Computed example of a mutant assay.
Amino acid sequence: MKTAVFVALLALAAAAPRPDKPESAELLHDEREQEGASYSTNVEIDNGILIAESGDDEGVQGTYVFTAPNGETVEMRLVANENGAVYESPSGHLPVAPLPVQAIHPIPEHALEAIEFASQQRAAGVEWDQQGFVIDN
């Protein structure tokens, strides 16, 4: 279901009108097959949109290509199965996590002592609840 929503949003974004491009596009290739839960879709439009997707009981995999409003070619790949969904962008259009922030101040001595004390208690089998209170076994 999430894949269908993603593909629909991707198609809407790709089909958004652009002032520098004509409003119509010609379908160059449209091949779709389905047998039971297995399917495959291959679509090519003259404005650069390419959709190649297949799926079965095991999951879905696909490649989606379109031109962004700034003229860049965007390529997205999806593999969704029992392990979850993995998105890749060979064209580099997925967000990337920032590098870890380095501390600009040293950790105070009392904080290091508290961390060490908690570590010793954890090693001794002490457990805490969600509010920070010791759980009596």
Rank of each mutant, 00 (worst) to 15 (best):
P19W: 03
I49R: 01
Y39H: 07
E26D: 07
Q121Y: 13
V5H: 03
E31T: 09
K2T: 07
T73S: 09
E113Q: 02
I51H: 00
K2S: 08
A124K: 12
V86G: 03
V96P: 00
L27V: 11
R122D: 15
V60D: 03
F117Y: 00
A11K: 11
A14E: 02
T73H: 04
S89M: 11
V43M: 06
E33M: 14
P100E: 02
L9M: 07
G59D: 04
N70K: 12
A52D: 08
Q130M: 14
A97Y: 01
P98N: 01
R18S: 09
A97G: 00
L112A: 03
A37S: 11
V65N: 02
Q121W: 08
D46F: 04
Q34Y: 09
M1T: 14
D30Y: 12
F117W: 10
A4C: 04
L78S: 01
N81Y: 12
V134R: 00
K21H: 09
L112K: 06
A52Q: 03
P17K: 01
H29T: 12
V86D: 06
T41K: 05
H29G: 07
K2G: 07
S54C: 05
P108Y: 04
N47L: 10
Q130E: 07
L9N: 13
A124S: 14
F133D: 13
G62Q: 01
L50W: 06
G48R: 10
A8L: 11
Q61R: 05
E58P: 07
I51K: 01
V96H: 01
E88I: 05
H29N: 11
L94A: 10
Q120S: 01
M76F: 14
H93V: 07
A85K: 03
A14P: 02
Q34P: 06
E26M: 00
N137P: 15
D20H: 05
P19L: 04
V79F: 15
P90H: 06
V101D: 04
G125D: 02
D20I: 05
E109F: 13
G48N: 11
A85V: 08
E33Q: 13
N70E: 15
Q130K: 01
F117G: 00
F66T: 01
D46K: 03
W128K: 05
E58G: 11
F133H: 15
N42P: 07
A124Q: 15
N83R: 13
D57T: 10
L99V: 07
K2H: 14
P106M: 13
V79N: 14
L27C: 05
M76W: 14
A11Q: 06
A4L: 09
R32P: 07
F6V: 12
A13Y: 12
E75I: 13
P22R: 11
A114Y: 11
D129Y: 09
N81A: 13
A14F: 00
T73W: 03
A11V: 11
V7K: 00
L50Q: 15
T63I: 08
S119W: 13
H29K: 12
T67D: 10
V126L: 07
D129W: 06
A103E: 14
I45D: 05
E33I: 15
P106F: 12
V60L: 06
S119D: 11
E88Q: 10
L10F: 10
G84L: 06
F6Y: 10
F6K: 08
A124Y: 15
L50H: 08
Q131M: 13
A11G: 08
E53L: 09
P108N: 02
T41W: 12
H110I: 12
Y64W: 08
S91L: 00
S89Q: 13
I135R: 02
I51D: 00
Q34H: 07
